[in-house]
Amino acid sequence: MNENERSTDASARVKLDSTLVGSRESVSPNQLPESETCLHVQDLSLYYGDKIALKDISMRIPRKRVTALIGPSGCGKSTLIRCFNRMNDLIDSVNIEGRIELNGLEIHDKEVDVSQLRRRVGMVFQRPNPFPKTIYENVAYGLRLSEKLPKSELDDRVEWGLKSAALWDEVQDRLNDSALGLSGGQQQRLVIARAVAVKPSVLLLDEPASALDPISTLKIEELIAQLKADYTIVIVTHNMQQAARVSDYTGFLYLGEMIEFDSTVTIFTNPTEQKTEDYITGRYG
């Protein structure tokens, strides 16, 4: 990532570095074979009471890639990403139609244990939300829920989680301090460590950097680039530069509809739909 790209004016069209584009995927995700699909969304519609929030969304989210969801505020990005770990179950008035398959298994199936599903599909929220516990206990929280690990293994997993989130060097000497004493960026990486520690296969990031300063944002983005080797990552962002920087595939949502879903390169350089073009070039949003 070069300096040029990061300092792009929001209103100006995002120009992708041609060398960078060349190194990324350019295959349309909807032509992916089943074996490379991690999440397969089919005709997903979501209603809040009578109001429709997501309309007939179909997409294949590829395994071990970063998929970004962009779109103006209120377009349904967060609602969609919260479908993938069934966080919308918590809202009484929500009705969902259609299918979401995780590695070929329908997640709304009656047999599915929601807790197990959420262990497979980790999530990081917009505002850093560490628990009011020690740094160690935050990372160990998910582990204690699912696995009965002996103390030494638990220590190893906590260390591993913190290292995965590039936080270990900063906190190794104060694991027993309160997590609330960390800076916002550190807190967000702690939350990522917490999610990674339970070894999920998918990581959902719901605007993970929007509450952070530029330096912390950069660190989170670097972290995403590292994590995609092992995890399927879905990131919601309304920062187009960020989507362009970190993602392999991008979906553009508008008023609850998936307008276009393609490789990031295609979306940002050669979108099919006029709406996408307009949004990318900053005509609305």
Binding site: Y141, L145, S146
Partner: peptide, 15 residues
């Protein structure tokens, strides 16, 4: 209690 904390816990697979 902020709802983020509840969600954070639920998202880690807690009941």
């Amino acid at each position: 209690i902020p709802s983020e904390l509840r969600e954070g816990s639920l998202a880690l697979g807690a009941t």
